[in-house]
Design a protein around this nucleic acid. Sequence first.
DNA 1: TAGATTGTTAATCGATTAACAATC
DNA 2: TAGATTGTTAATCGATTAACAATC
Lengths: 216, 216
Amino acid sequence: MSTNGNNKISLPVINRLPRYYRTVRKMQHNGVTTVSSSELAGMLGTTASQVRQDFNCFGGFGQQGVGYNVDLLSTELESLLMGGDALSTIVIGTGRLGRAISHFLAFDARGFRLIAAFDQHPDEVGSSFGILTVRNINTLGDYCRRYHPQIAVLCIPEEGAAQLAPTLMDLGIRGFWNFSNYDLPSREGVTIVSVHLGDSLTSLGFRVRESLENNP
Amino acid sequence: MSTNGNNKISLPVINRLPRYYRTVRKMQHNGVTTVSSSELAGMLGTTASQVRQDFNCFGGFGQQGVGYNVDLLSTELESLLMGGDALSTIVIGTGRLGRAISHFLAFDARGFRLIAAFDQHPDEVGSSFGILTVRNINTLGDYCRRYHPQIAVLCIPEEGAAQLAPTLMDLGIRGFWNFSNYDLPSREGVTIVSVHLGDSLTSLGFRVRESLENNP
DNA sequence: TAGATTGTTAATCGATTAACAATC
DNA sequence: TAGATTGTTAATCGATTAACAATC
């Protein structure tokens, strides 16, 4: 069923949904037809309680005494996560990372559709970018006013992101997948998901060093 | 000061440290010499209480009535996060993503040192990889037994990661920066930080669609 | 029916925030 | 000294886990 009326769904729950979906797809692929909350929990390293709580945010699609129908679960999660029209998406920054991410996005779309790529370097502009051509960053405003992209993927350095973010929000961008080091300011109606590679690496370092101290 | 004795530092705290460090560095760069917990909190979108709680995990380096010395804070955080010997690191998978990530790692090392890269494709093997040369994946075991790398960056598909992970742990890898879709099983003494790009993108999609429903 | 497992309410746990005494 | 701000303890909040009645 669709999202359970007023009950706002918490971020921890939302962030677990993709993993549920991945796991259920895998089971479906293996021909499993029914799964209990405790089986799923075991597979995911969580608790049966959590699985049931999470699924119930969207109106129970289990059957008491039996469990969950894998096909149904898969269909529901899929429509929940990537149902409806594809989100039109632009990439800003076509360096190494921008190209890798865009390839990922184009290869495994998950409800997104890449419609343009922008860069500031003259020698990038005009170069091919998958099935697209890299556009000049100074045509970004015109482009957005004409095509109204919904999502922006930021693969540019901090300064560029800081400068561009408010403009992009004003131009109607509703979601950011941010790979820059800049922390975008939140704004009503705009969703921001940041992948801080540097922070992630730094905390890995801290944790490994901590572990090496206890157990060299 | 170094980590406060027995008090285990919680993961939420650890994950906030890199942001503290980034912010403090920026202030240092701007010539700020002293900062209060509430100023820092304002800058980071958190509370003064949290800042003080977090810093106190490492034995207070503030001064009552005055605040925190920016240089000291920067030095302490730096030594905490990337002090000591660099962690020797290998990359597995030299496709688009592997190359982008490695470039990032080499450019902004943060206490890591990239010492080798491996791939399974014959036409990748032997190609240049920054200052390194791509090695054949089937020499991985020998390499690890000889050079004892501490960190592995996984930029390979799920199946490869699933197959390689236990082997790498047996070979003494102490930390994984995992970009595959595979959820590595945890093991005592091994730290895993996963960057699930697909999950991150999927939850962005969910949240944007949710927001579009309320406010098209 | 009896056994199993959900949906849902209640209890627990941990993290965040507030408060305030210590002290610069 | 008075004002400010930390370090630290206590209160709150939210998320996770446990329990159990409903029901397949």
